[in-house]
Amino acid sequence: MPRASGAVLGALNVATLLLSIPIIGAGIWLSHRGSTDCERFLQRPVIALGVFILLVSIAGIAGACCRNNCLLWIYLLVMFVLILLLFCFTVFAFVVTNKGAGSVVSGRGYKEYRLGDYSHWLQRRVDNDNNWRRIRSCLQDGKVCQSLQEKNQTLNDFINSNLSPIQSGCCKPPTACNFTYASETVWVKPAGFNSSDDPDCNTWSNDQSMLCYDCQSCKAGVLANLKHDWKKIAIVNIVFLVFLIVVYSFGCHTFRTNRRDNSYPGYKY
């Protein structure tokens, strides 16, 4: 069909334009209704992403429907850069999350995590005081440890529970500390305890605002959770990358067709 690629390109960009509307709406909602610093922190990136998708979609629609080669050229350039960045980020995500896994603890249903098992790049991110201050604030706002404490488990139930990486690393001391269980987030240090080879044993506090939030195990738990999330994001990115390549291909075909028509006005399909 004549100009079929332009019609398909326009339809695909209409779909992405419609997608941008709920993304922008989510950003505006976070700016007004976000109850924590973590939620409010997301508002600007979400709104920026939505506006970016909106503008690129409009350029693609205008270029395809109005046969404006200048807009199409800008659109294709932006799409190429976006594809390149998305490809690089996907590869990077797989590389930096390749290392690191929880260690099985004898007689426990949960795993424990060590910061040194993860990539140096990720370690530097959480070891940065400013970064960790924000992450710690998010953990406290999320009430991860508080929700664990509300279970009121016995010791046997607790040691057989399947804790999340963050709960295991931030809400309890490492098993090697040999502290006595009082509740999920209250552990009694042995009499005469002064120090330990594991610095996390000294960092642990029964103060519910402190717990093990500054422990190396807590940072490792955050990275374990991040690794899991990044793996899922990388898979979604691959699907999105394929979609972008398809759209880019239609865009290139439409651009070539428009340029040919402009060069030979009398040309008919």
Rank of each mutant, 00 (worst) to 15 (best):
F179C: 03
G251F: 05
H228D: 11
W121E: 13
G107W: 03
L76G: 02
I61S: 02
A182M: 11
I61L: 08
F41C: 03
F240W: 01
F158E: 03
D141H: 12
S205M: 05
A93R: 02
V247E: 08
I238W: 05
C252T: 10
F94R: 09
I245S: 03
I83L: 04
I83C: 08
K143E: 09
N128H: 13
A59Q: 00
D157L: 05
W73E: 11
S57V: 07
L49S: 04
T154M: 07
A182K: 15
A4F: 14
R133H: 10
K189S: 07
L12M: 15
P174F: 06
H120E: 13
I233C: 06
C38Y: 13
D229L: 13
S217M: 12
L122W: 08
S168T: 06
F92V: 09
D261R: 11
Q140S: 06
A220P: 09
N194H: 15
F80T: 12
V14L: 11
I28L: 13
L54F: 15
Y118L: 08
H228P: 01
W204I: 01
I159L: 08
P173W: 09
L148E: 01
G251M: 08
P22R: 00
V96H: 02
L72Q: 11
Q167N: 02
L86H: 08
N160A: 09
Y75R: 03
N160K: 11
A191V: 12
A11Y: 13
S137R: 11
L241N: 00
R134E: 12
P22W: 00
L226D: 02
N131Q: 07
P265F: 06
G251N: 02
C138N: 08
N156V: 08
N258P: 04
L223A: 03
S164A: 07
Y213T: 01
W204R: 02
F240Q: 03
A4V: 09
D200T: 05
Y267L: 12
P265G: 03
G192W: 00
S164I: 06
E112K: 01
D214V: 05
L85E: 05
G116Y: 10
S119Q: 06
F52L: 15
N69L: 06
Q216A: 15
T154I: 09
A176G: 01
Q140V: 10
S137N: 14
F255I: 06
S249F: 13
S137E: 15
W230F: 12
F158N: 01
F255T: 02
Y113R: 06
A4S: 12
T180M: 07
Y264K: 14
L19P: 02
S57H: 05
P173I: 05
K151N: 10
F179S: 00
K99T: 12
C215N: 09
F250G: 04
N178H: 10
F255D: 03
N98K: 11
L77H: 06
A101Q: 15
G102P: 01
L244T: 01
H228A: 11
K111L: 12
S209T: 12
F193C: 04
L85W: 03
Y248A: 09
D229E: 11
G192S: 00
I166K: 05
I245F: 07
S161W: 06
G100N: 09
M1C: 12
R134M: 13
T36H: 02
A15S: 04
V247T: 08
V14G: 01
N69A: 10
C65P: 00
I135C: 05
S31R: 09
N69P: 04
M1R: 13
P173M: 07
I24A: 01
G34S: 08
